[in-house]
Every structure is written in structure tokens, then in C-alpha cells.
Design a protein around this nucleic acid. Structure first.
Lengths: 186, 186
DNA sequence: GTTATCATGTAACAGGTTACATGATTTT
DNA sequence: AAAATCATGTAACCTGTTACATGATAAC
């Protein structure tokens, strides 16, 4: 039940076409709710039929022609209602943790390399978030909207830091226990 | 593509029936890959048909009768192959972060209470993990299997700590900025 | 005019959720 | 014998993914 609300949020921030939304889901919004253009078009259709958004009447609709949407009052109300709804945190679902548990049973050649690879990816993601933070939230700008959006970004940053910390500790343990300690150099 | 491998892992740890698996998915395995009995039965059927597991021949099969499965060599090989496969970390997908971003646009009455509720839930989950850690990983037991399983549990613990930290900071900011500072007491 | 790319879609499928159905076993 | 619960399953639906199709516009 989250994608339509992600779309409503994005459209309230700025009316857009399906492709524009897709691009924005590859950046800001997608950092905590990713999606593909197929899903977005499908959902835009449903939202329009439900009377929560409408296509701007500026251009006549046709396949291949750009179609921009804006949120109708009903859509804004639906979004506000959803925000107010309590929802429990989901159980973790992480393939890497699962693979590690499986590795405890069937063995794990190459798992260390995989952990290192993930570490690099998370470090890259962290650097990206930090760049966004510097760009979008310089000290001083503190409206309520900025505060909330900054908190969301902080969530992403903290989460990457969690992974980096965990992976680093896992790798340290790994090299300390599995590979015999071996000073570098020839 | 993870559920079948979660099931294979669980069955290698201990041959079980569908219901027993369901219960174990509510505890240990489910802490990083949750599932329901419907999905588990469906997947057990597929795995049996694919020749990766088989029902123990001790009882004749019938609806309502317990049916225990064990992993066949093909299943163990498939699991080992999957463990060795590289797989990128997924994008974050969190409804709470999304709701916060939406709240920046449509307002957020009651969001503070929701954050507090989540904080309590994460603290409970953390306490549960720590109890498991004390019970299953007392200092000293350091086989390779234990080491990997302990790392997985540590992942869960660190993740709960991430949420607790983030929520605490969010709430501190919230009370500091929105509600006027007000000393407790009459 | 051909090629690239912008833009909107369709179709088929896989994975996950919710609601319901039904047989077997144990407890009272 | 009735009720509880153990145990397996079906069906419908929703969400998400992958592959493909097609029209409009811009660049060369």
C-alpha cells in the first residue's frame, strides 16, 4: 500500500509525467521507495481512475505523448489519512544475512570477497547521501519541511553506516580467524 | 529467489514438517527472512517436485497428516551454488521513512506518537535478540558455524540499534523544536 | 529520411498476503 | 461426542519484475 502514496507525495512536491516520476524514483524518492516505470504507469492509471489525481488538460492524450499529472483534493486527503495510520515496522528481509546463515551450513568459499564488495557499495552510497546532505541541507535552513526531509536522509545515512560497521567487523573477524595472520609484502 | 533457499537452510539444520518450519520462521530464520505457512507449503511442493527435497517415507501421505521433509544432495548443491552467487544490496524500502517524507508535504499530526511507538517496538526486539545472544553464544563457543550464525544475529542487533538511535534523535529534535521546552512537574 | 531518445504503455510471470477449507489428533 | 488444536492445503488477489511493443519528437 505504499507505492501510490509515494507517487502522491512526489506529485504534490511537483506535478510530473510518468517518465519524470520514474527519474525522480531513481533519485530522491527512490532512495527509500524504489520502483520501475511499468509499475508507476500502472499505478498512475489506478490513481486517475480513483479520482485522486488528474492529467493536466494542456495536451490532448495519445500514446507516446507526454501526460502530466497533478494531485486532486481527494488524493491529498487519502495521503494525509495514510500518514496518520499506525503501521508496525516490518521484519528484516535481507538476502545477505540469509546467505550467511546458509553458509554456516553448506560452507562459504568466496563469501569474504562478497562482503568486501558490499562494503564498497555501501561506502559509495554513503558518500552519495552525504553529498546530497551538503547540497540540500546546509546549516541554517530549518523549516518544518526541511527538518523532516533531512531526518529521512539521515535515516539513509545512518543505515549505510550500520552496514559499513557490521561488514567491517565481520571482515575483521574473518581475516583474524580464517586466514592465518600474514604481514603484507613479499 | 530467497525463500526456497531459506527453507533448504532450515531443513539442513533440521528435517521438519511444514508447520514446524512455519514455527521456526516465526523465530530464528524468520528474523531475517519471514514467511507464512501458505507460502512455505507452496514452496515445499515446488522443491519436492524439483527433486531438491523429499518427504521422509515413515508415514503415508494424506491431507492433515504430518509430512516431514529432508534435503536431497541436489538441494544441498543448489543452496551452495546460490550462496556463492553475488547479489547487490537492495535499495531501502521503508514505509516509515516514506510516511515522514509525505508528512513534510501534508502535515504530520500524531507522527511523534508513532515514532515513540516504533522506538518501543525496536527496543523490545533488541532485548529479544540480546537474550538469544546470551543463550546461544556464550563466550568460548567458536566453531565456524557458530561464528557465522553469531554474525547474522549481530546484524539484527546492530540494525535494531540503528533504528533506536535514529528514532531517539528524531524525537529529541521533535520535542526540541515543535513543542516548546517545558520542564516536567506541576 | 534514418537514427536516437523521449514517452507511454502491454503481457506474462514470480513472489507475497489474506481469507478460507478440511482432515487428523488430542483433550475434556 | 464435542471442542480445541495440529496439520496441510486452495483460491483470489496484490505487488513487483522482466521482456517486449509502439507512438512522438529531436538530431543528424
Amino acid at each position: 500500500m505504499s507505492l501510490p502514496h509515494a507517487i502522491l507525495t512526489a506529485l504534490l512536491e511537483k506535478p510530473s509525467s510518468g517518465l519524470e516520476l520514474t527519474r525522480r524514483f531513481d533519485r530522491s524518492i527512490g532512495y527509500f521507495w524504489s520502483s520501475t516505470h511499468q509499475q508507476i504507469y500502472r499505478e498512475l492509471g489506478k490513481l486517475e481512475e480513483a479520482g485522486q489525481i488528474r492529467a493536466l488538460p494542456s495536451t490532448q492524450p495519445a500514446r507516446g505523448r507526454k501526460k502530466e499529472y497533478e494531485v486532486l483534493p481527494a488524493g491529498r486527503e487519502a495521503l494525509a489519512a495514510w500518514v496518520a495510520l499506525p503501521e508496525d515496522p516490518k521484519q528484516i528481509r535481507d538476502p545477505l544475512l540469509l546467505r550467511m546463515r546458509a553458509a554456516a551450513v553448506v560452507g562459504a568459499p568466496g563469501l569474504t570477497a562478497e562482503l568486501r564488495r558490499h562494503l564498497v557499495l555501501h561506502e559509495k552510497q554513503l558518500a552519495e547521501y552525504l553529498a546530497i546532505e551538503r547540497r540540500d541541507f546546509p546549516p541554517g535552513r530549518d523549516s518544518e519541511e526541511d527538518r523532516l526531509r533531512h531526518l529521512v536522509l539521515r535515516g539513509g545515512i545512518d543505515l549505510e553506516n550500520f552496514w559499513i560497521g557490521w561488514l567491517t567487523r565481520a571482515l575483521a573477524q574473518d581475516s583474524g580467524q580464517v586466514t592465518p595472520a600474514r604481514p603484507s609484502g613479499p
